[in-house]
Design a binder for these strands. Structure first.
Lengths: 314, 314
DNA sequence: CGTTGAATG
DNA sequence: CATTGAACG
């Protein structure tokens, strides 16, 4: 393993107090041997299936960064999906060209309408999908800017009363090598969403690759210089909300800590619930009256992200 | 998968009659649907533990191309080795730098004397090893020519009455891209062995990456243009024998067909015994009186090669 | 830690 | 078909 690789791993894996990356630590000031500390878990409350004004939920959307669709299928991700039975399933990081898709998913009768976007240049990189029970009025790919649309990151489906946008936002990378690109993405993506929103309200879901506030990740202190929690990325998300959108989970559960959707595979982060909330349902303000619930399905396994589910009344 | 990759696979996987790489074949001339044909297996006879003049075997050498030592260890290759209990164990294609060796093998008390050679440039490529119960008088690496000695292909151990050379001979490659290099290797390696042989007789073992005669592979006809059975490689081996060396297995079993040491992982070749004899014990002529037996352990699993074992009386 | 394609066999 | 390191996350 290269020194560089090792170093970066530690940096990105959240510089938390549990980290034990040294050999024998200098026993100074009577510091204790690391005591494991019981993990603080999060249990998502039962689904609320009505709006605040009493209308029944009639649309269920699930979003899941699958971190490699083929491996995720082998790990029985589709069994969980069948159980959840959403009206629309949005997937990110499929890492799979359309021709290499497993039959298990291409043949799924529950979702007669399937849309795939893959990276044009790099095989097995990025990629999103949207699977629908009912046919959208229209489906588009990308955000209408050449420079952003070659990595299979966005699918937009138009439904009668709203747009559904699923996105896999570019990771700023180890050492923030792609933070500059991310900033231009954030600007252009926000413009794209605002443009849509002028026509019809929208639901944005997916891996937005940012933990917005300190409450949205276990170790905010140690991650201010790491991809997903830089000031720039957080500010990008703040500006998105300022443009007339709402983080549905945080709106419903403003004080809820320890609610994460991603845990690095390293250092048993998931079992310790050392995670990040990177996956969101972001709604146009005018759609908030239709919101029933925004769920984190953190017991569903098969990826380093867990799925999230939105209930609303169209 | 690239078109190129697919094509080459078919070429290298032995153009045998069982190959079914077409879609619906034109049903011409009443040709039958491929009928499976029962595989012709080979059962190695019991070990003979005496020389022809009645001396008891007192040296046992095992050679195994492990096709990745780390995976082979996980697949319990070492359990088989413990059972076999050779005096010397020679391994080829370890694909492992010395520092990445699994503890299971570095800590083996059965072999207090261990020697490792790895590729200097490409990590995880080539590599051979020799593990000994008794300490050799001397051990050297390579064949004394810069151009050949950077890929970790040869270890030579000097014992009181003979040299033991283990080798992983360069593969000529898909499309024979490295056949030219192989030819120079064959010349230089032969010179190296002849030089040793002038001082003391030798045992050469390992993956020589050539099937010598038609009897030494299942599908000679279809492989004349493939790595391991070109005229050039076969001629190289013939010339080695002409220089005063003997293919011990073939000497003992001149007519034995279907005796192979390698089967491609593709198309269930091993279960059909569609294989190649690529692994040898080659002995200096003057050592032939010491030969007891030359075995093919084709039931040992863990690699695409099986181990071979030599019994002789030093 | 775990996914993916590339190179190699 | 299977192993390996590289890129990426």
């Amino acid at each position: 393993m290269s020194k560089r690789g090792k170093k970066k791993e530690e940096a990105a894996a959240a510089a938390d107090g549990d980290k034990d990356n040294g050999a024998a630590p200098p026993a100074k000031k009577g510091k204790k041997e690391k005591e494991p500390e019981a993990p603080i878990l999060y249990e998502d409350p039962p689904d609320k299936l009505t709006t605040n004004d009493g209308r029944a939920a009639n649309m269920k959307i699930t979003s899941w960064n699958v971190d490699g669709l083929r491996a995720w299928v082998k790990k029985k991700g589709l069994d969980w999906v069948r159980e959840e039975s959403p009206d629309v399933l949005c997937l990110q990081e499929t890492k799979c060209s359309e021709k290499a898709l497993p039959q298990d998913i291409t043949s799924m009768p529950e979702f007669p309408h399937k849309y795939w976007a893959g990276s044009e240049d790099k095989e097995g990189y990025s990629g999103v999908a949207m699977l629908c029970k009912t046919k959208p009025l229209n489906v588009t790919f990308g955000i209408g800017k050449e420079e952003h649309d070659k990595e299979g990151r966005v699918i937009t489906a138009e439904f009668p009363t709203f747009y559904l946008v699923t996105a896999y936002v570019p990771n700023a990378g180890r050492g923030l090598v792609r933070l500059d690109y991310r900033k231009t993405w954030d600007v252009d993506f926000r413009a794209y969403l605002s443009g849509l929103d002028e026509k019809k309200p929208l639901v944005l879901c997916g891996d937005l690759n940012v933990a917005h506030q300190e409450i949205d990740l276990k170790n905010p202190k140690g991650n201010r210089k790491n991809a997903g929690f830089t000031a720039e990325e957080r500010e990008g998300f703040t500006q998105l909300l300022s443009a007339g959108f709402v983080d549905s989970f945080r709106e419903l559960y403003p004080e809820q800590a320890n609610a994460y959707t991603f845990w690095t595979y390293m250092m048993n982060s998931r079992s310790k619930n050392v995670g990040w909330r990177l996956d969101y349902f972001v709604l146009s303000s005018k759609l908030m009256s239709a919101l029933c619930d925004s769920k984190i399905r953190n017991s569903a396994m098969g990826s380093d992200h867990c799925p999230i589910t939105l209930h609303f009344a169209v």
